[in-house]
């Protein structure tokens, strides 16, 4: 495995199930059992009703590009040599938006509304990162 030189997530109790699911190749999000709202990013509380009745649920892994930008300049190690790359907000089928990169395609082919699906890349033995690619 080549050495991962991009920033890595810090993982704590409230977010650990998310990252452990990613390691298994599964995208999970949270839904509140009290108010039934989905939320992203994951939290130890329901951001909507402030209850702690939050449950982890498997996401469909499908969504559409809500917006994006083709990045041509980023001085951060790990990204500087990756330009141009696509930074995007993807709206999941469940209705919540998440930041991601759109990979496995030509940046010029990305458009708002493009159907995408999750794909995973193992960063190291502890962390696997979810990305999105155009739906087959």
């Amino acid at each position: 495995m080549p050495e991962w030189n991009k920033p890595l997530p810090s993982i704590v109790g409230e977010t650990r199930p998310y990252w452990e699911s990613c390691r298994r190749g599964e995208l999970v999000i949270q839904r509140c059992d009290s108010c039934h709202e989905y939320q992203f990013y994951p939290r130890g509380i329901c951001a909507n009703c402030w209850s702690n009745d939050i449950k982890w649920v498997k996401a469909s892994g499908k969504g559409t590009v809500w917006t994006y930008t083709v990045t041509y300049q980023n001085r951060t190690q790990g990204f500087a040599q990756d330009v141009p790359y696509v930074l995007a907000l993807v709206e999941l089928a469940e209705g919540v938006k998440m930041f991601t990169n759109i990979v496995e395609c030509n940046p010029q082919d990305v458009k708002i509304g493009l159907p995408v699906e999750v794909t995973f890349v193992q960063a190291n033995n502890q962390v696997t990162v979810p990305y999105f690619k155009p739906s087959a």
Partner: peptide, 17 residues
């Protein structure tokens, strides 16, 4: 250098500027 658990860890890993 260390990302905060949230929101950074769900954002900065994707190369935000």
């Amino acid at each position: 250098p260390r990302l905060d658990p949230s929101p950074d860890s769900f954002e900065e890993i994707y190369g935000l500027t």
